[in-house]
Simulated scan of single mutants.
Amino acid sequence: MTDRREIVQRLRDTFAWRDTPVGVFADLSGWWRDPELLRMLGPSLAALHTGAQPTVVAGIETRGLVLGPLTALSLGVGFVEIRKEYRIAGEGQREEDDPMLRAGTPPGYQDGGLTLIAPRRLFGPGDRVLLVDEWIETGAQANAVRRMVDEAGADWAGVSVIVDACPADVRERLCVKALVTEDQLPG
């Protein structure tokens, strides 16, 4: 098992805040470039919820589609991708052939909210779903995924993230566990 101090140090060493004309953003590109850190992420995110015994890992596009499979492989379970509906409108099968779960974020989220979708057939009773992502602030997307999981009759195992920047009530309600908090990153 990876030493917690080692992964935290690597996350700090390869992270940067970037100033742009539209504001400051978290530059995570160093995380993906460090092969040892990349190798450690899946097992480390999986270890955050050892008692939850997830049967499936879900990840929201875009970075959840990278971290989710790494975590699922570590747990020996499958992976479900959660897509943003506007990105796949008009693609694939007809809805009646493959019904989708849908849940939206609040209207104020990302200038108008968004709708997350996943094929209904991929979640069901008996599943324990662990959501994996790189960062959580408001919990809007995680709340939407949790509603989808509930609608499918599956159980919520929690959220594993690299960075926790959410309020305590969100952390508790969604069972969020993280490798680092935002204030642990270099400023």
Results as ranks from 00 to 15, higher is better:
residue 146 R to T: 03
residue 119 P to D: 00
residue 12 R to V: 13
residue 168 A to K: 12
residue 16 A to W: 01
residue 23 G to S: 11
residue 25 F to K: 00
residue 1 M to Y: 02
residue 146 R to E: 06
residue 57 V to C: 04
residue 45 L to F: 08
residue 91 E to T: 14
residue 119 P to K: 12
residue 103 A to F: 00
residue 134 E to V: 06
residue 131 L to S: 06
residue 164 D to K: 09
residue 71 T to R: 01
residue 17 W to N: 01
residue 124 G to Q: 07
residue 114 L to A: 11
residue 148 M to G: 05
residue 166 C to A: 15
residue 47 A to D: 14
residue 96 E to R: 14
residue 8 V to A: 15
residue 159 V to W: 02
residue 155 D to F: 03
residue 70 L to F: 13
residue 149 V to N: 05
residue 131 L to V: 07
residue 104 G to K: 01
residue 133 D to Y: 04
residue 85 E to F: 10
residue 156 W to G: 02
residue 44 S to C: 10
residue 99 P to Y: 04
residue 35 P to R: 14
residue 18 R to M: 08
residue 69 P to D: 10
residue 146 R to L: 06
residue 1 M to P: 15
residue 157 A to F: 01
residue 28 L to Q: 11
residue 61 E to R: 02
residue 178 A to P: 09
residue 60 I to M: 10
residue 3 D to R: 10
residue 137 E to D: 08
residue 83 R to K: 13
residue 180 V to M: 13
residue 48 L to Y: 11
residue 64 G to N: 05
residue 172 E to C: 07
residue 183 D to S: 14
residue 73 L to N: 10
residue 17 W to K: 02
residue 165 A to V: 01
residue 124 G to R: 09
residue 171 R to G: 08
residue 14 T to E: 10
residue 99 P to A: 09
residue 58 A to Y: 00
residue 67 L to C: 07
residue 119 P to S: 12
residue 142 A to K: 04
residue 187 G to H: 12
residue 133 D to H: 03
residue 59 G to N: 04
residue 166 C to G: 11
residue 112 G to E: 05
residue 24 V to P: 05
residue 15 F to E: 01
residue 9 Q to A: 15
residue 57 V to W: 08
residue 113 G to K: 05
residue 142 A to G: 04
residue 91 E to W: 11
residue 76 G to A: 09
residue 176 V to P: 13
residue 129 V to W: 10
residue 15 F to V: 05
residue 69 P to H: 12
residue 2 T to D: 07
residue 27 D to C: 09
residue 9 Q to E: 15
residue 45 L to A: 09
residue 92 G to V: 02
residue 86 Y to T: 12
residue 71 T to I: 00
residue 128 R to L: 02
residue 46 A to C: 08
residue 57 V to P: 02
residue 170 V to D: 02
residue 79 F to G: 00
residue 150 D to L: 05
